[in-house]
Design a protein around this nucleic acid. Sequence first.
DNA 1: AATGAATGAGGATTCATTCAT
DNA 2: GATGAATGAATCCTCATTCAT
Lengths: 194, 194, 194, 194
Amino acid sequence: MPRVGAEPIRRAALVKATIAEIGEAGTLDVTVSRIAKRAGMSSALAHHYFGGKEDIFLAAMRHVLTVYGAEVRGALAMADGSRARVEAIVRASFSDTSFRREVIAAWLNFYVLAQSSAAARRLLVIYQRRLQANLCHGLRPLVGDRACIVANNIAALIDGGYLRQSLGQGAADGQTAVDHVLGYLALELERATA
Amino acid sequence: MPRVGAEPIRRAALVKATIAEIGEAGTLDVTVSRIAKRAGMSSALAHHYFGGKEDIFLAAMRHVLTVYGAEVRGALAMADGSRARVEAIVRASFSDTSFRREVIAAWLNFYVLAQSSAAARRLLVIYQRRLQANLCHGLRPLVGDRACIVANNIAALIDGGYLRQSLGQGAADGQTAVDHVLGYLALELERATA
Amino acid sequence: MPRVGAEPIRRAALVKATIAEIGEAGTLDVTVSRIAKRAGMSSALAHHYFGGKEDIFLAAMRHVLTVYGAEVRGALAMADGSRARVEAIVRASFSDTSFRREVIAAWLNFYVLAQSSAAARRLLVIYQRRLQANLCHGLRPLVGDRACIVANNIAALIDGGYLRQSLGQGAADGQTAVDHVLGYLALELERATA
Amino acid sequence: MPRVGAEPIRRAALVKATIAEIGEAGTLDVTVSRIAKRAGMSSALAHHYFGGKEDIFLAAMRHVLTVYGAEVRGALAMADGSRARVEAIVRASFSDTSFRREVIAAWLNFYVLAQSSAAARRLLVIYQRRLQANLCHGLRPLVGDRACIVANNIAALIDGGYLRQSLGQGAADGQTAVDHVLGYLALELERATA
DNA sequence: AATGAATGAGGATTCATTCAT
DNA sequence: GATGAATGAATCCTCATTCAT
């Protein structure tokens, strides 16, 4: 009885192992062998399923982006009203799922990968556009014409938060990061309603 | 007449070549040989003067940080008043000298290097602290107790600006980045004086 | 049918090639590549199976020591009486298997390796102790209290024989070496029974 | 005023440094740079005076052999009678000057060098012949026809003593080594006069 | 599906040696 | 006489990738 559906399981294991390994090393300089071993298989099998190292990285990236996207969507579904929706996006960005040491390290490295891999850049640009669009749309009713500028600032604050946290030694502190960004949002809303 | 000081010349050439090479590749995955060749010497000489690859990277990092620091100091010297001083720091951060494709790529990679190299992290942390202190100090007379929070946000916006620009294909647009950050600053000042 | 045990075969081939190469060069200054080539494989595979150059050397050393030990044990098994046992050890030390140009060169180089490698020294010290113990034990019934002194002299004569032979250009002459050492033994026995 | 006779001083310094360096490393694998630095000069100058690395080694070897030879000659000059002369040679061989950790290591490495360098082998063979001749000649009046056989054994015991000492961790114990060899000599004389 | 075996290519690093000054 | 500068050549080692089984 050949075990059915081994492939998706293997791929998922590899993706997870990749993120863990990058997070641990803080670099893309991790060997396929190590990733495969952590995922409980031979490096040959990893190649079999993914084709090559970069493909493994891209799959890991896609996974991170997907998880983040799902988190945002989930938060949006429960949010009521424009402000709540914007705040939900911010909170989702610093949720315990995404704002973890290893995932932060992975993000940072994906930005680096995007410098040399067109495919990686494409993924990251899509993510950026979607985030920007979500924020812009949610902010329109709140700050009118400034919506996209504010959206841009919020996005930059989020990215900046990640970057700064990447240097921190302690556990990632999502709450403080959220407070900072929402503080800025409050300021903008204050002014808009003044 | 003994040939004077080949060493500082060589070191400077290597540092420059390193930044260029990292900028071009978008990675730290550049060979010492390529760097040396670009700097017009053998890789053996590069090792002779620096000891090893990481030392070369650290020297390049120190250089970038030093240039940036000088730029900030220069701008501060010409600024009159607290607000002007804060704005000067922001402008210096996006000056044409520092906010160039290759330097941005270098910064990004230095953040990655800091994940695995204690020496690199130390350098980056020092830079962060100094920036934060400068901003905090300049903002005190302007926003009082919120000074350090605002400073933190400005710093995050600057970092975020770099990160976002690293994905941009066109030439780096420092002016727009400055406008965004200063827009936020204006908002804070407005509220403080309200 | 999975191809069985390439590893032991490869390792054995490498060990053999290492001894041959050291014997030919008269130095530990042989490259892993040359060893691997002589063993019919890539240097990468040699590293894969052994980890590094020193590990290859240590394995070769262990092999030489093991072969010698087996030879001694075999000779002892056939020897009848104390004197015969001591003589068997001496003869085994200069057997055609061990007292060959390339093996002698290897021995010499292992002594050198032991100067800088703790692992190598350990191996050599163990071999020395065992030899000394064997001789001492065998000599006790023959020369009583002088046993260990005589054992020490015999061991020194054996080592000296190797060292002197390492300079000889002709084929190794085990018989003469044996005669010298046994001549000394006879002398001691003569005196003991006088 | 150009300093006269700098050359012999420099050469002597290099020779001394070479022996020290080999002794410390336990290998011929020492760099010319380190030797030169220890001797207080640039590696370029070392090459200037000696031509190349092997020449430096050969000079160091010649020095060790010369010092040893002088020691033997000095001891012989003071010895009265055949037995005293033979004993003098043995004692000189284990004198504090020659039987020191670093010199022992150098000797061992010279044997290795002799495997690949004809010049080194020549030096070592000459030393061996002279030692053998000296012993043989001194022993003739004492043991007659057995002289050269006994000489050979004594020489082997001396070499063996060096080899065994090279593995010892403590300070070299020349006295014990001398005792062992002279014990053997006494045995031969006893028999000869029986 | 899965893996051990195997390698080519490449890269950091070291070092003896040369040379201009 | 003396040295800093400079490099070509070599070597160890790693790793992504392929392939037969």
